[in-house]
Design a protein around this nucleic acid. Sequence first.
RNA 1: GUGGGCGUAGCCGAGUGGUCAAGGCGCCAGAUUGUGGCUCUGGAGAUCGAGGGUUCGAACCCCUCCGUCCACCCCA
Length: 418
Amino acid sequence: MYRAPRGMQDILPDDQPEWHYLLDRCADIAKRYGYRRIDTPIVESTDVFLRGVGETTDVVEKEMYTFLDKGENSLTLRPEFTAAICRAYLEHGMASWPQPVRLYSIGPLFRYDRPQAGRYRQFHQFNVEAIGEADPTVDAEVIDMAGLLYEELGIPRTSLLVNSIGDEACRPSYVAALRDYFARHLGDLCADCRGRLERNPLRLLDCKNSVCQRIGDDAPRSVDWLCDACASHFATLSRYLDRLGRPWQVDHRLVRGLDYYTRTVFEYQPHDVGGQSTIGGGGRYDGLIAQLGGRPTPGIGFATGLERILLNLKKAGFEAPPPARPVAYVVAIGEETAADAVALAATLRRRGIPTAGPVGGRGVKGQMRQANASGARYAVILGPDELAAGEAQLKPLQGGEPRMVPLWRIADALTADT
RNA sequence: GUGGGCGUAGCCGAGUGGUCAAGGCGCCAGAUUGUGGCUCUGGAGAUCGAGGGUUCGAACCCCUCCGUCCACCCCA
């Protein structure tokens, strides 16, 4: 028996109401903040992610679905949105639009990872980017939008962690200081961290190993190494965040795993932590557009995992909106009425009435069971007697008396009740 | 990539070496002839994840693979 690929799943009809509820909430929030939707291809040239996300990141090194198409071009199933959106920004000359360009996307991403709670190989994100503005007002805007989304969805007790990791001017010296510091504790570090020391010292900060954590407690803090411009940016953002009234805290160990981040980085975490503690996060990427071949252009973005939102909503006792149900279910009695029943159902649908049935080859009882199971409000029953009289029986399925209605008025009767 | 738990009908789930593998949900049908929901009755549906091995005999023991869940790693 065939199954969906590992770590990927079908979104079944019963799952659709909650799924679409979520999509709608995201789209609504984005709209309220003035963000417009963009959809990009699910595959991109591999280079977009190689150069955008960073060649030494885990995402690029071991998690990408990369393949050669028949023209020998290397393509990759997008593992994240930001690099792809920036590619679109450049390709379509969005630098000539009013800045910042505010965009959002919703769709599937792919990462070849070992699946576990809240982590899948195909997963979905709501993603937001504001490209072309370096001012911290935009940082505050994006951070606030994410917070409001969680608030309105009713995810209880998320905490907002923020940090600033500097830019190309000040980060190198900070990284050097960090490397020096950890090098002095080399013997006590876990094996992973010893490896990370050379390649990406920032990552030592969020190692889960308790010994490494204790060493990290006294490590140099990025906020102490910021250049004047970065320090001022962070100070201003801090004022804005305080003024917004949403609780937040600086997390000196927050660094995030993608290379393009500069200055502001942030994460939202539900308190009720399982294995996957981050529900959403993002940050500034002032060097990314240039990295992809454009003129230097600042940007900031945010992404949240829809599956993780759902995970948290369900833990909080979230109930999905009720599924869509037909208004009418047409029941045909006997072979000779089947054609007229099919035509009657077709007529109702043309009149805009959601209609299911008829299904032949079953008894009346069987069809009535179907009608009931469909959740339809009315059974429209057509038998030889009704047909002869030019009418059909309209039977309310949630209580009430059946009545006879002329065939030509059935749509009106149903519409009047809708 | 590493470690651990688990894999019995569409779903849940008993059964841990020996009759034709329980039960529940769901599905289909019937309970006097053309009417659902409750109840009752009946039926269909399982090569017990796959392959190999041990044994007179395996769903139950062993091995391999696959899948799944959880954790590490990483991240959403």
